[in-house]
Amino acid sequence: MIEKINNLKKEILDKLSEIKDSKALADLEVFYLGRKGEFTKILRDISNVVPEKRAAMGKAANQIKKEIQEKVNEFKMQFESKETQEGEEDITLPGVKFETGHLHPITQLQYEMEDLFTSMGFMTLSGPELESDYYNFEAINIPPYHPARDTQDTFYIDSKNKEGENDLVMRTHTSSVQVRAMQKHGAPLKAIVPGRVFRSEATDVRHEHTFYQVEGFVIDRDITFSHMKGILELVGKKLFGPETKIRMRPKYYPFVEPGSNGEYTCFLCHGKGCNLCKKTGWLEILGSGMIHPNVLRAGGIDPDEYQGYAFGFGLNRLAQLRYKTDDVRLFNSGDLKFIKQF
């Protein structure tokens, strides 16, 4: 019996040495070592051996099987490593193309701003784009025929109220949400309002009638001008880097008093003066101020008890600065040559 096994072992080892590829090796393995293989058959026959010899024989047979199996595995490894080397890769080829999507650059900036402010505990609010004259103008201290309406060419809706006036507008700023927010949430209040706004202005490379803003306001008992400056400094550093400084100077907006604009150190020349900042070293980015008591009152908040600040950023302006786009109309163009760059 053992002899038979040893003969078979020899036969297998001889055949192994002649085998050229893994396919033949696999066939051989099945032929001898498989469930119905020759070697397996012999092992099965051991059960017919007399019990006294069976244990020793079984041990020996298994030992031989193990040896054969190890030899087979050795060959297997050789073939595998050889075969995978065949058909060598050009490792410099690019990968198979996976199509990826794109978020609009203004969406990306808006999210950046939202994340910054929500991390500081601000709510993010929305408001209607088609707005009443009341919330867009009157409630925020811009009565009819206020000269400030000069600078805001407004799209009016072709519908008239009982007095025969066009009293619906496409909102000219996100400030229209201020009084709505105060009426809904009361004070204290910390909120930002990102959104689309409209001005009736002929479009060209530098002008758009549809653009995007982020408005923000904080109302509480002891909110000061200095606090406003503090947060705007922080936004500047976040947007343009830790070295960024803010410069504020008086600017008139009817809904704030005192009113201010805000300029950040030009990120391109770091304040030295270049073409981007028109040699001033500063980029005008925002408008801000302490919320006018009339606006607080319109929102049902007592200005003797509470005070607050408000600010507004133009997202198109930020996007143009950051991405150095040369035509503001690209943002609303639906042109994938543009969008797919972001």
């Binding site: 505990g121 204290p188 200095s226 803010i246 410069r247 008086p250 005192p258």
Partner: peptide, 30 residues
Amino acid sequence: IKEDIAEEIARIYGYDNIPGSMPKLEMSAP
């Protein structure tokens, strides 16, 4: 109104001379 007077004082004093600071506010989840 008094806010107008505050603006007169602040702007002549110089907005640039008012340092920025952070308010002490109660924490709350928005």
